[in-house]
Each structure stands twice: as C-alpha cells, then as structure tokens.
Nucleic acid binder design. Sequence first.
RNA 1: GCGCCUGUAGCUCAGUUGGAUAGAGCAACGGCCUUCUAAGCCGUAGGUCCAGGGUUCGAGUCCCUGCGGGCGUGCCA
Length: 567
Amino acid sequence: MDNKTALAAALAVKTGLEAAELAQWIETPPDPALGDYAFPCFRLAKALRKAPAAIAAELAAALPLPQGIARCEAAGGYVNFFADTGAFASHVLSRVLREGERYGSSEIGGGRSVCMDYSSINIAKPFHIGHLPSTAIGNSLYRIYNHLGYRSVGINHLGDWGTQFGKMIVAYKLWGSKPVPECTVRELVALYVRFHDEAEKNPGMNDEARAWFKKIESGEEEAVGLWKQFKELTLAEVGRVYERLGVRFDSFAGESFYEDKMQPIIDDLKAKGLLKLDDGASIVDLSAYDMPPCIILRSDGATLYATRDLATAVYRKETYSFVKSLYIVAYQQALHFRQLFKVLELLGYEWVEDCEHVQFGMVSMAEGTLSTRHGNVVYLDDVLDAAVQKTYEIMEEKSPDLIDKRAAAEAVGVGAVVWGVLYTSRIKDTAFAWDKVLNFDGETGPYVQYTHARCCSVLRKAKEAGSGFEAGAIDAALLTDSASMALLKALDAFPEAILAAAEKNEPYLVARATMDIAAAYNKFYYENRIMADEPALRAARLALTEASRSVLKTGLYLVGLQAPERM
RNA sequence: GCGCCUGUAGCUCAGUUGGAUAGAGCAACGGCCUUCUAAGCCGUAGGUCCAGGGUUCGAGUCCCUGCGGGCGUGCCA
C-alpha cells in the first residue's frame, strides 16, 4: 500500500467517510517544506459545525499515523503529513531498480487492441511539417498503450485514391522525363503544381484527368500500373522519414483499400431507413442532433470521405475487435468525426463509444497557412536535416572526441524536433519557426537526452573506477537530502503520468514527467558528489543515478526519442 | 449568423480536475567549470490569469454575458 491510500484509510476511520473519496482529497502541498501530503479540512467544516483549523488541529493530534508517515502537523485548515523519508526513498528506489526500463508499465491493457489512425499521408504529396503532429502523437500513444499492456495497432490510412491521381498521370505523361521509380516525390509535386497552373488555362485537362482516374477504377493496366508506381515511390521515400522518427505501422490500408467495402454500409443505411435523397445527394439527416447532414453519396452517385470512414470504422472493429479506436487527426475535422460517430450510433453500433477523435492544433507558418499547391511548405526532411546539422556542429565544439558523432547527432537533432511537438497539450496551434526548432536549451529533448547521457557517463566512470552498487543493499536513508528527495518524488510520479497520458491521449504528460526527472537529476548532480569517498553513500547515489537513467530512457522512448549514451 | 476550440510574464507553455504565496523554459541582466558531460546549475527582473457579473469557506480552474483569436458550417479530405 502506498502512503496516500494508507493515509486515506486512517482518515476514513477517524472521519467515518469513504477511504476512496478521502484519497481524492489528499493533495501535495505547494512547498515541500510544508509536508509531503496535505489533507484539507474545509469540506468537513459544515457537517461538523467547526472551523477548519480546529478540525485540522484535532485530526493532527488524534490520528494514528500509518506506516510510512513520520509525523503530521496542523497548518490553517490543513493537516500536513511528512513521509518517512528513508522508507519513501527505499520504496521508490527499489521499485525502479527492480522494474528497470519496464518501470511504469502495467497489465491493465490485458492484451486488448487499441487501433490508432495516425500520420495518414497522401500519396505523391510531400511529407511536410504539417504531418508531424499526427505522426508524433500517434507514435507516442502507440508506445504508451503498449507499455500499459494493450496491443497497439498503428494504421496509416493512406490517401491513395481520387481524381488527383488522374491529374498526376496526365501531368506525368505530358512532362515526365524519366521512369516513375527514378523520380522523387518533390518532382511529382512539381508536376502536380504545373498541372494546376496549366489546367487553369486549359480546363479540358481536368476532363482528361477524370478519364484517367476512371481507368484506374476500372482496372485498366497502364493507369493502374502508374498509380501503383506513384504509391510505391511515395511509400519508399516516406519510409525513410518514418525510420528516422522511429515510427512504425501495422497497416497501410487506406482509401483504395475500402473502395469495395462501402456498398454493404450503404445498403445497411438504406435498410435501416437512414438514407434520404436531398438535392440529388443521399444523406443522413442529423438535424435532430444539431448537425448538418452527413453526405453519403454525391448527386452523381460517387462516395465521399464519410462513406469511406464508415466502412473503415466497421472494418477495424471486425478485424481487430478493438477496445478503443483513435483517430489522430487535426481539429479541423471535428465536425466530420461527430457526424461519423453519430451515424455509426444510428446504425446501432454500440462500440462507437470506444471511438475517439484525438484532435490537435494547426501548424502554420509566419507567411500563412501551409499549402503544397502554392509552394508554402517546409519539408520535414529539411527540418530534421537542419536540426541534425546544428546538433553535429554543437558536438564538434563540445564533444570533439565523440566517436559515433553522426548517429548521436541524428538521435538528438530528430529528438529536438519531435519533442517540440509533444511537449504541449495537443490542442495548441503552433507557428513554425526555425529559431524555436533549433533551440536546444532548457525544456527540450536534447536537455533530457543530455541528462541521460550524463547519467551514463557517471555510471561508466564509476565502473572504470571499480565502483558499483548492489540493488538489494542500498542504504536509502542516505538519500534524504532535499535534492535527492525531489528526484525520488519525480521518479515516483512517473507511472501515474503514463496512466494519465493514456486516459487523456496526451503524450505531453509523459514528456513533462520525464522533464521533471531530468531537471531534478541535474540539480541532484550539481549538489551531490556522486563519487563520494564514503562507499555506502557512493553506492546509494550511483543507484539513484542508475534509476534516473533507466526512467529517462523509458520516458524518452515513450515519446518517441532515442536515448544516446554519449553526446 | 450559428457551432466547436482557445485567451495565464515580452515570447512559448504548465497549473495535481475548486485549495495554501499563480509556476517553468526562452529572451534580458548577473554569478558558477584544474571534482563525476557548462546542451548544466544558481540568482535578479518580469502578472489586473482577456473584461464584467455569479456560485462558495475558497475561483486561473465551475456557470452566465461580453470582447479578442483559431477552426468549422451539404456534395474536398
């Protein structure tokens, strides 16, 4: 039993209230000098007809202190409790050392599936900074859910269908100068932009594009061949970016995959009387729910985004029998998902409760919105390259003797970019700015990675000097100075942060908990000489360093960063 | 117009689900490397928590109104 629940149990006996409820009242005082846990008595005042301060004083005097709590005192309307620091230090340290890099993991997922739709790029379009939030958030949640015992299913719902591929074919046949596999995505994009320029003068080109897309749909050999080549080329190229980011997927089933899976849904909607004709289009009327109608079929009979997403949702349920299905998509599409989920509900699918639109804010540029067509884009590759390059320069200056400089620079440069996305709550809009991306000081990925490398360095040097520790034989009472205690508290808070991150689908909670540990370690490092002369003290501090190292590595991993041992 | 989101230090953001004196980082200024990685640590300065009401022992946090910003609002995704 941890201190909080033990306290709640003791308070329950004294107050006659539910321990579970009391546990929620217990909070952490703003200043550690006030205590480690606080119980506010204000809510009891009315029922007991006494002043909160008087209640606090009485409780402080009469409460039998559970094991793990050394003392308590009344302060205003609060009872403040002080943990038995030695016992707390021992408890946290031994748990972290025992669980190692699995610290904070759990079995609550029970192997059940959680589907996550993230990144979801368009074929033959550049992978730009606008794609980063979905990719990074999805990748982090993928790791977090797995850490909690779920089976994450990462899905890249490819935008690989539609008339834009007819346009691509027209443009390629007109201006393409080499076989598709030898092109780059940037060259394809240039063709696409040129198509739009020319089509403005020559609208007939749009008809031609539609005709070519029809050929793809009907399986005409040349059209399908080109379409496949565009797709393969894009996936190969973007695959390299995913590799840099450490991102993986279990499925690339995208729009084309669902082409033949929509009819059953349409039939089902008809059978349940939900479909109605309006202005030539087939819609589901959602006015009863204060929403515009969900359009299922265009007036020309073509399917739409919503049609495909209905089929997709059902397919995922049938294929993966998920307990959660997450759509990591920008908030612009909030209405679409509300409509989608409502239609699924009207179809009678109770599991729609388990579907969630995990939305995030927009990425913009100082010059305005990102636009491939207008050339106002920043390619993610360029951003990563710049960050890695700058990292490399810093390393040449600060760690000239580093052997594996290239690999370390890659890990740190990419980490800086990813961390920046995952350090704030999802909903915030971000304006892309080079100087922000290329800042490695303060609350950044490199700071945490640096701290990890610092731990590694200390442990390495200790080993060289023949110093070590035995996990079972640490005198944790030697770690009760304020810096050590602050570090132990930060380590203690880590598992809860992971749970909260999964519950809210907010990776920043893990990032911040990890940052707290790094900051606490740096302070601990500064204030305490780890390689102390006294052997027991040295062993205890080395043990705390090892505990910090492993949790930093886990925290970095959970937000998608590497943890180099030297930098 | 209507709907959703958002507003905290010059900038970027936290704020334990209503608790004690509102916290970090960046930028600015000052200090600390012949002890384990200075991508670090310490200090100074910086606040009408958008405004006004309300709820109560207590509001940055909950409710209402207004203002500013973003997004969306029937055949794109």
